[in-house]
Nucleic acid binder design. Structure first.
Length: 152
DNA sequence: GCCAACGTTGGC
DNA sequence: GCCAACGTTGGC
């Protein structure tokens, strides 16, 4: 019996927004160049639920839901010289970066803004409210995730 | 292995 | 634009 895990993944809406995902249906969560964030993706399982977070915008916050539908995909952008995520140190025989595929589930009825999240949760409960937390992929405690889901 | 310098993220 | 909080890089 596998338990569902919950995650939060950030994207700047100018780069890729919840509406882009709604339009695309599914997308590769590529371009992650941080080992900790990559390792979180390696811990994901199919069926995991992901909160989509818009960062670097007004206001930042949780804007929707998605589901992990495919795992352990080699990130194609690391070998693409025209990509801003090109990594000359990565070798096709031993790729450094991989990613997951996610599917659109829903938009939040109303954005759960960071100020609201800070009122509702402590930084121990929800890592994204922690000041200075730069990681773009974070685990979400399942008890906290269930409270969040009621608000989405 | 240490550490200073530098780069990045992202809220404010 | 500022800055906190890290991560990365490279000299030694």
């Amino acid at each position: 019996m596998t338990e569902i895990n919950y995650w939060l993944m950030k994207s700047e809406p100018d780069a890729y927004s919840i509406d882009s995902l709604k339009n695309d249906g599914v997308t590769l969560w590529d371009g992650i160049r941080n080992y900790q964030a990559r390792n979180f993706m390696r811990n994901m399982e199919k069926g995991d639920i992901v909160f989509f977070y818009h960062s670097n915008c007004k206001p930042p916050g949780i804007v929707g839901l998605m589901e992990v539908v495919d795992l352990n995909i080699v990130d194609p952008t690391q070998f693409d010289k025209n990509s801003k995520y090109y990594d000359p140190k990565s070798n096709p025989d031993n790729p450094k970066w991989d990613c997951v595929k996610v599917k659109y589930i829903a938009n939040s009825k109303k954005i759960l803004s960071l100020p609201e999240l800070k009122i509702l949760f402590s930084e121990d409960e929800l890592l994204v409210v922690k000041k200075g937390n730069r990681l773009s992929i974070l685990p979400v405690r399942s008890d906290i995730a269930k409270l969040l889901l009621e608000k989405i």
